[in-house]
């Protein structure tokens, strides 16, 4: 609420300042023109040689240019100010989400270490504690990696940093295969998944990345379903693209938040959501990955508590955007997988 008020205030200041500038500009032109006319009338009679029109016009033009430039620079400042404010907000979100995600595993590791330091722990318990600590270390590692990875992504070092592992696949079989793999890696109890439909085309995909996308979407569906998660996946073919739709019966997303969810570090607070943990990076990743594949992702939800549908559109290899896709394939040949993509 406060943030939007801030924005309105900034826009108000900006518009007022611009109006003031233009008023000043108008006054200045008016003053010049009246003076000029006066000088023409009076000066002509007294002393004709003081009228040197050309230099005066240069003065007028350079004055106007100056004022216009000031106005442009003010707009620029305004744009950058807004960008900066947005960054600050992102930073706040980052601190809030990530510090929590970092501290939770850290505090449990500390707890186990202090426990074992303090008292003799039976052997079987020791084993259990060590496993729990390893789990937390893994979680920390994953989180730190994704943050570091994000920063390299931001710096547009993509070309060398990210694996190029794109190949042409039969869309139907690769998608079913990857979904199967992603599901088998989930240990959530009580999820049920159905896959309907059929796509009959080829596609160019990096299967590791696709798996990350699918795992994130399944993870979200499980997280945001208060009861047993029911995920329905539908495959369909369009003219230039084919579609993968992910539907769940979870808490849904209010219409005004539907755009936000793909932003970096953005998390929507909903008291009904069963899980409040996360970095706010998952869907940001998903969106970026889908974009590398030349595709698009969108979200639909009838509103709160009415489920959510994510729709991924990917290009059909036979018909669309050959140039971009071929570049991916070419790069995949050139760069052997440089870095293993961690998807846990």
């Amino acid at each position: 609420m406060k943030k939007s008020n801030d924005l309105i205030l900034h826009i108000f200041i900006f518009v007022t300042a611009q109006l003031a500038w233009f008023l000043l500009l108008g006054l200045w032109i008016y003053w010049y023109v009246t003076n000029y006319i006066l000088l023409n009338k009076v000066g002509g009679k007294i002393s004709p040689q003081i009228i040197t029109g050309t230099t005066n016009i240069i003065a007028l033009v350079s004055g106007i240019v100056l004022l216009v430039m000031l106005s442009i620079s003010m707009s620029l400042i305004f744009v950058y100010l807004n960008r900066q404010l947005n960054l600050t907000r992102l930073y706040d979100n980052f601190i809030a989400n990530v510090s929590h995600e970092l501290k939770s595993p850290l505090s449990s590791i500390q707890l186990y270490l202090e426990t074992m330091h303090k008292m003799p722990v039976p052997r079987d318990k020791q084993h259990e504690f060590l496993n729990l600590m390893l789990k937390d270390v893994k979680r920390l590692n994953h989180l730190i990696n994704s943050i570091l990875y994000l920063s390299s992504l931001e710096q547009k070092k993509m070309v060398k940093q990210v694996t190029y592992d794109y190949y042409v696949y039969n869309a139907d079989s690769i998608i079913r295969q990857v979904i199967g793999e992603a599901l088998s890696e989930f240990k959530f109890p009580g999820k049920s998944v159905s896959i309907e439909g059929h796509v009959d085309c080829q596609c160019v995909i990096d299967r590791n990345w696709l798996k990350i996308v699918i795992k994130n979407l399944i993870d979200n569906a499980v997280k945001y379903s208060p009861n047993k998660a029911q995920i329905d996946i539908r495959l369909s073919t369009g003219t230039k693209k084919f579609y993968i739709e992910f539907s769940d019966q979870g808490v849904g997303i209010a219409p005004r938040n539907q755009k936000k969810i793909f932003s970096k570090f953005e998390r929507i607070y909903n008291p009904a959501s069963p899980n409040v943990k996360g970095t706010g990076l998952g869907l940001y990743w998903v969106k970026q990955i889908v974009a590398y594949h030349g595709g698009k992702i969108s979200v639909e939800s009838a509103g709160l508590n009415r489920g959510t549908t994510f729709k991924i559109a990917l290009p059909i290899y036979e018909v669309s955007k050959k140039r971009y896709i071929n570049r991916l394939l070419r790069l995949s040949k050139k760069y052997k997988p440089a870095m293993k993509v961690s998807d846990e």
Binding site: S104, S107, S108, L111, Y112, T115, K125, F129, L132, D136
Partner: peptide
């Protein structure tokens, strides 16, 4: 506490 790992450790210590 919703974090399983932390809860198990706390439970152990408080029970001790």
């Amino acid at each position: 506490e919703d974090e399983d790992t932390l809860a198990i450790g706390l439970e152990f210590n408080l029970s001790a």
